[in-house]
Design a protein around this nucleic acid. Structure first.
Lengths: 239, 239
DNA sequence: TTGACTTAGTGTTGAAATTCAACTAACATT
DNA sequence: AATGTTAGTTGAATTTCAACACTAAGTCAA
């Protein structure tokens, strides 16, 4: 068995997304040490598998959650495994495996913090499926895949609710979808699909007030409804 | 960096699917050595990262292709990364990471071979999203996830063509979808969708002959068409 | 108090997609 | 030439859905 073989290093990297000022943003950290010193990179680090050590991850997901907490100070809202990258060339030092995750958080929930290895950390706006800076390792590729996955899932799941605070109006939810899909959606179609899919629940008696008609507040309905939601008009407008 | 830390072992496991006798089947091997000796398991093994050794994998996918070839003698028809499993408890010996793949092959293309570690290898029919035998490690979980992914993709992609030989009739393609989805599909709807999606090409002048009207043979059109295909009637019938 | 303004939320309708079932086509067999 | 079987098409009935117009409920300014 492979137990006696040479082993690759195993990392966890996370693409942490939020929505702010009508734009999708991703959290990047500036590397403080080589390789790729001073390059921006996805937050991440080695999986800690030494039971005696002060930090110990029982699972890969635990490692991802730990990184997420270290970087944002936020408890996990949405965390999904993206895919795993492994080769002899992605890190100049050695054969490495990176298990990539992506996370969604409401902007308000986050307090950006610099981790130990990171000289700096900040949000970067995503334009044309990329970020306007060169990234370390194959992180440009990982980020690209993460954005693709996010956009694909936006089209047929309720995933976008995780970018909003606990209580939100249907108009806010629609705007979120519109920013992510870069398309305008029809109001009544949107509401019909949201209701049919059963992805939200009315919060009885709670409204968003303003200088106009108050809007009903909703929260995410946890039912693991699958495959129900699909803003079809986005197809055409994106073309 | 994690370079100095203790490392987990990294494996690649593959769920190899085919369709035979109207049933989805998966290839399992009987383990010849502990742990889980004599249990059935997904084919797999350690990623070889030692550049000096006789076997060396440049990438994770290379490792998966190598396992696939060792086990089936077939060149890769369809291979996709599923997800990665890693924890301190999935292998009784140590912290392990398994990068799981799933592969689709036409039944005729495969010559099952026993790999070095495997005492035996054979196809198992899938009933109710599982196989009627206890599997080693967390392979029951991996297999379950693989079946879920396969069934989900059948509904909106042309993935099922990879279970058929190079040339096939539209009726054969429809039967394939019906067996996978466990639902009856309408002939005219099915053909309309297949044509609109552009997932197949006529092979001019080639027909499947029999004691009835000959059927046009088609082949897979490689265009990476995305998200085009969706046998909607499966929704209802599956409930 | 009233009317202008703004955003929330609902109905209505025509067009497109889908189902269902009947139909024609092309072979072999007898 | 009649029969059986599977290939492949057609069109009417039905359902779904995007587009757009509409109503509802508040604030604000005069």
């Amino acid at each position: 068995m492979s137990i006696n073989y040479k082993k690759p290093s195993v990392m966890v990297d996370i693409a942490i997304f939020t929505l702010h000022e009508k734009t999708l943003k991703v959290l990047l950290v500036k590397r403080g040490i080589p390789p790729f010193q001073d390059h921006w990179a996805l937050p991440g680090g080695g999986v800690r598998v030494d039971q005696e050590a002060s930090i110990f991850d029982k699972t890969l997901e635990d490692a991802a959650k730990r990184e997420l907490l270290e970087e944002t100070g936020a408890k996990t809202h949405y965390l999904e495994q993206l895919r795993t990258y492994g080769s002899d060339s992605r890190d100049p030092r050695e054969w490495t495996v990176s298990v990539a995750y992506f996370a969604l958080l409401p902007y308000a929930a986050i307090q950006v913090q610099s981790g130990s290895d990171a000289a700096d950390a900040r949000w970067w706006s995503i334009k044309d499926n990329r970020v306007p800076v060169q990234l370390a390792f194959d992180h440009q590729q990982i980020l690209h895949d993460a954005i693709q996955r996010l956009q694909a899932k936006v089209e047929y799941t309720a995933i976008a609710v995780h970018l909003l605070p606990n209580a939100f109006t249907l108009t806010e939810l629609q705007r979120t979808y519109e920013y992510l899909l870069e398309a305008k959606l029809d109001k009544s179609s949107f509401r019909r699909r949201v209701h049919n899919a059963g992805i939200v629940k009315i919060i009885p008696g709670q409204f968003r007030e303003g200088s106009n008609r108050p809007a009903q507040l909703y929260c995410f309905a946890k039912k693991t409804q699958k495959n129900v939601f699909f803003p079809r008009s986005a197809d055409r407008n994106l073309g």
